[in-house]
């Protein structure tokens, strides 16, 4: 148990060091930095550019910049954003919070849909319910999240029920707590749905396979013989038996979720990590690029850790002393 947590933490530390070092080295090798647009400005003199370089610390050698960045990580700042003029950590953490606000409900919704559809299909493999849910999955899988998000925008634009992207109305500041909550929820609805639908096909395939395998186990047949109802059979017998592979999938799909979230955030102007990274790429705001990338990696590690812990909680075999997951 502790070993699992320790391994993931070590993984995270290695990730931070390797990714940040790679970013600094790559940034050094490639021409162009934050001041590149200013250099094209005829009004900027050579002296003032030099002064700016010195102020931003861009004139120091690579290792000094990297070490001072590492120092600021230890101080909890993760460097300094040149474009926003603030430390990176609060900026990135706030945006990561928004990404979670979008992706956690989306994950929950996706799993709910996948479990319902998967159970429906697994109950009678080859039946019309199964074929319908398989067909739905295959169709959804062929529609990229980019297209799904644009379709959602179309729905929002044509129907007028949902806001056209963003996270809050312009007038949100005048609303009370409940008003603002409803406002955010209204903005959250479409992006969550899009992200969930993008995730469903992969989950559905595995849920169906795991559940139909679990339903074939002899103890499930025995329980059915004892007169246990279909729903209870599914929920208390088959689902726990199917849980371990599905939890592993939960960890694996975290990366797909975050990638999908990036697209949805950008298309629907949701102020998450994705748009932050994209803007930083265009502005060559190195510390924000590093910070946002690292945080996406850390979210992935956290997702995997959560999957480990859930697996540990669900699977009694792992709790035996000496067992290794």
């Amino acid at each position: 148990m502790l070993r699992v947590v320790g391994r993931r933490l070590l993984h995270a530390a290695v990730l931070v060091l390797a990714v940040s070092a790679a970013c600094f080295v790559l940034a050094e090798l490639v021409p162009g930095d934050f001041l590149a647009p200013a250099r094209l400005d005829p009004r900027a003199s050579a002296e003032s550019l030099e002064a700016l370089r010195a102020r931003y610390g861009l004139d120091r050698p690579l290792h000094q910049r990297y070490l001072s960045w590492l120092g600021s990580v230890l101080r909890g700042e993760m460097g300094h954003s040149l474009a926003y003029g603030v430390p990176v950590a609060p900026l990135v953490l706030g945006r990561a919070g928004n990404t979670l606000l979008l992706s956690v409900p989306a994950t929950a919704l996706a799993w709910l849909l996948a479990l319902i559809l998967g159970a429906w299909g697994a109950r009678r493999p080859g039946g019309w319910g199964d074929r319908l849910s398989l067909g739905l999955g295959a169709t959804l899988q062929a529609v990229p999240e980019l297209v799904l998000a644009l379709l959602a925008l179309l729905v929002a634009a044509r129907s007028g029920i949902f806001p056209l992207g963003g996270m809050a109305s312009l007038s949100a500041g005048e609303l009370g707590f409940w008003g603002r909550l409803v406002d955010v929820l209204r903005h959250l609805a479409l992006p969550t749905l899009v992200l969930a639908l993008a995730l469903v096909p992969v989950l559905l395939r595995h849920v169906r396979a795991a559940l139909s395998e679990a339903l074939e186990q002899s103890f499930v047949h025995a329980a059915r013989g004892h007169g246990v109802g279909e729903l209870r059979l599914l929920l208390t017998y088959a689902l726990p038996a199917a849980a371990p592979p599905l939890l592993a999938l939960f960890g694996l799909s975290a990366g797909t979720l975050l990638s999908g979230s990036l697209v949805v955030e950008v298309v629907m102007s949701w102020p998450g990590l994705g748009p932050l990274l994209l803007d930083a790429v265009f502005a060559r705001d190195l510390h924000v690029i590093v910070g946002a990338t690292l945080l996406s990696g850390l979210l992935l590690v956290a997702g995997n850790l959560l999957a480990d812990l859930l697996l540990y909680a669900v699977d009694p075999r792992l709790r035996r002393p000496g067992a290794t997951p």
Binding site: H11, L15, V19, C23, A254, G255, T256, L257, L258, S259, L262, V263, L273, G274, L277, L278, V281, I289, A292, T293, S296, G297, L299, L300, V301
Partner: peptide, 11 residues
């Protein structure tokens, strides 16, 4: 593979 694919790509 420790980074979400699209974040890696953008970075």
């Amino acid at each position: 593979m420790a980074l979400p694919a699209l974040y890696l790509l953008l970075a």
